[in-house]
Design a protein around this nucleic acid. Structure first.
Lengths: 143, 143
DNA sequence: CTGTATCCCGAAGGATACTG
DNA sequence: CAGTATCCTTCGGGATACAG
């Protein structure tokens, strides 16, 4: 089972020490190969999960996605799709039609991710009210 | 099952239309009550999952967390803990000792979240290599 | 239709100093 | 010990215009 302090150290790019006695070495913090952050940073983007949700259902073309998410800018749609493609979550196929058309579809890796990601999305939806209630309580106490 | 285009519309703060025929109303995009983004924004923070992982294991005091994550600034540690507390994921208890000590512990809501969140963290750890490989391939093709 | 290229702004986060 | 307060930098992301 993951999720212990050992993983914490892995997250900050450190190797685990010998015991609990030794203080951690502050130098040489790399951060570039923290697996969790490396993945979460991507799907933590403003539009990533939205696109994954859409493409999990079926392939879509650029313009279709654009219409489905009217408040995304063209720039961010392109960039988000590129990033998802770069990480191997989605594929891009160009059809050499008269006006060129491009279709995006989810890969197996993407589906694998979406399987666990959707659990989190469902949780968020299901517990949103409780979170909002907690916020109201907190803000009230803070006067 | 959630995670369809209907949810997409919910994410952007819209109510679902009557059918696929009608174009969505571009006006009145609220965004403040998009459940998924409302929750994901929090745990998408740079230190949130790290703190949740630590506190999922056991309660910790401020300084302990600080030592466990040496590259977090005091400012961000305070703020991240506050935010997690505000959303109801963790509790803060002050012990009126000589130098005051404060302990943070996970709530039931936090454990509930962490149950599904840890699945995602495990996935990230397990598939990190594949993601990195996909990136290398993408970057190579792009010349 | 599917993008690139620029410019720009606000929010996230780091460094440092000070406090009960 | 456990924070606040202030300043400053970086970066994600929006608006707009142009292009193949």
């Amino acid at each position: 089972m993951a999720g212990t302090v050992v993983n914490l150290k892995a997250r900050t790019g450190q190797s685990e020490g010998l015991g609990a006695r030794r203080e951690i070495d502050l130098a040489s913090l790399d951060f570039t190969n923290c697996p969790v952050r490396d993945v979460l940073q991507q799907i933590g983007g403003k539009w990533s999960t939205l696109l994954l949700e859409a493409l999990a259902k079926q392939p879509y073309r650029f313009g279709e996605l654009r219409r489905m998410i009217p408040d995304i800018s063209q720039r961010m749609l392109t960039q988000s799709l590129r990033d998802l493609q770069r990480d191997g979550y989605i594929e891009r196929e160009v059809f050499p039609t008269k006006p060129p058309s491009v279709e995006y579809r989810m890969t197996e890796l993407g589906r694998s991710l979406y399987t666990v990601l959707s659990q989190l999305l469902n949780w968020a939806e299901a517990n949103h009210d409780e979170v909002r209630a907690a916020r109201l309580r907190f803000d009230a106490d803070a006067v």
